[in-house]
Structure formats: C-alpha cells, structure tokens
Design a protein around this nucleic acid. Structure first.
Lengths: 135, 135
DNA sequence: CTGGGTGCAAAGTATTTGCATGAAC
DNA sequence: GTTCATGCAAATACTTTGCACCCAG
C-alpha cells in the first residue's frame, strides 16, 4: 500500500479520500474498468457519484498519472502509469496482466521501412490465462 | 472496386444497396469510424439511418466479415477482415494504415515465458504519418 | 410471395456538464 | 478563508431495440 497523497499533490491534485481510494484500487487490482471501479467505490463510500469517478479518471489521465488500456472485444481498463509494457488479456475471465516485452526490434523495423515517426507502440495479446486453462 | 454481392450472400446476408455502399467504403478508405461512415452514407442515400449502420456493422462483425480496430486516445475504426496485420495510427490526422509485421518471435517468447495460451496479438503503433510530418 | 432489411422513433447505456454544498489545505 | 472536489440532476453522446413498411431473392 503506497501513500499517494504526496504523489497526487505533486500533480496539483487534492488528496481526497475518493482519489486515494481510486489510486489504491488501481494499485492493488492492477487493471480496473470504470464499472468495477464504481462497484468497488460504492462499498467504501455510501454515496460516491459515477460523475466523480469519471472526473477523476479523466483528470488523472490528462496528468499522465493513469492510462486507459483498450482491449479488443472487451471493455477498457485503467492502470497506473508505469514503465512501458504490453498486456495479456484473457477472453474468458476478462482479466488483464502486464508483460514486459522488448518491442524495439519492431519499432526499428517500422522506422526503417516506413516514413512513420513513432511515438509509442501498444501491444495487446488476447487468449486464455493460466487460471482459466484449467476449467 | 470489388463486387461484394456474392461475398455478402456467402455470409447469408442480402446484398442491399446500403451494405454494398458500406463495404465499398471500407474497401476504398481502408479504415473508417462509425461517424465518418455515417457522413459518407448520408451523401449517397438521402436518408440512411444510423441504426442501419450500427446493425450492419454489428452483423458483419459477428460474421467476421469486418473488424473493429481500437486505437489508443482515438475513436475506433472498422476495416474489412484480411490477413493478420498491425496498424499505424497518426495522432495528427487520425488516419490509420496497415502494416505487416511478423509478431511470431514475440508470440513465441510469450508462450515460452508465460502460461498464457495466445489466440491473437494486436499491435497499434501511434505517431505521425508521412504526410503530417511536413506541416 | 416471403424473409430479411431499412428507417424512424423510442429506449437504453455511457459519459459529460453545471451548480450548490462541502472538504482540503 | 479560498480553492478545488464532490454529489446530484440534467444534458449530451453513443448504441440498441421494436415495429411498420419495403425490397432482394
């Protein structure tokens, strides 16, 4: 459990209980959809507004504090911004895992063979996770 | 200009003028968002319904006839299903290009280092396209 | 003909906005 | 005390659904 109070303030964001709860949820769960984030927040605050969730998600995204991960055929999830990485998305449990893969070879190839100026590369691999392979 | 009449029928879909227009648009433009597809269709049909666009897009997706491409920080675009490939997304003009990249090395690496059973790998590279680099 | 497709309107879902109150600092 | 965040309600945006009519096969 990390103290996000100071980190939020560094981004000129007040450290409200709602924000601390959201960041903690993202930290512990890793990847959360708006929907499940709301459900989790309702348990902690008797009356948190969905608008508050959206406002904070959008604000933190603008601050590059968190990032949206778009998954093919599934809902987006959000994660705390960290070192560049890729994602494994399970089509069964809808869970998302981080995976570190070196995409530099690919980026170099694209740079050499096309006239495209690359900012970022985003890889999402879909399939069945370890747990779901049992059932 | 390809004749999609037979292809549609092979999927048990009637070859209506609306469908032929949609498939032709996807064929000529390559990648189109719902919004711009609607604008393009309105020019051809005095009164086409957005509902018709959605119904057909959804139906063709279920038939694996077309596919949605989710782009980070931008709206989804749709394309005709073709051989596996990756995408270059321009953050300036919002255009999307296809690019063929061999992801097998990466897929092998993931298979060997994780217990994840891969179905598909989806790479979207964001940056500035050739045209937009001039301005 | 006949089944499926279209367009319209309405419903449903997702997201954003405005504003008064309340909390952080 | 000020500024900014929250919650609520309303507004907007996006997508789906139901149904009468129409067209492709």
């Amino acid at each position: 459990m990390i103290n996000y109070t100071d980190i939020l303030r560094e981004h000129n964001l007040k450290a409200t209980p709602q924000r601390l709860a959201i960041t903690n949820e993202l930290y512990t769960k890793g990847h959360v959809s708006i929907e499940s984030l709301y459900e989790l927040m309702v348990k902690k605050f008797n009356s948190i507004s969905l608008a508050t969730i959206y406002k904070n998600i959008n604000l933190m995204q603008k601050n590059s504090f968190i990032q949206e991960v778009k998954i093919p055929q599934a809902k987006s999830v959000y994660e705390l911004t960290k070192a560049s990485h890729s994602h494994l998305a399970c089509t069964k449990c809808l869970g998302v895992e981080d995976i570190t893969i070196d995409l530099n070879v690919i980026i170099d190839t694209i740079t050499k063979t096309s006239s495209f100026k690359i900012d970022s590369a985003n890889l999402v691999v879909s399939g069945i996770c370890k747990n779901c392979q049992r059932s």
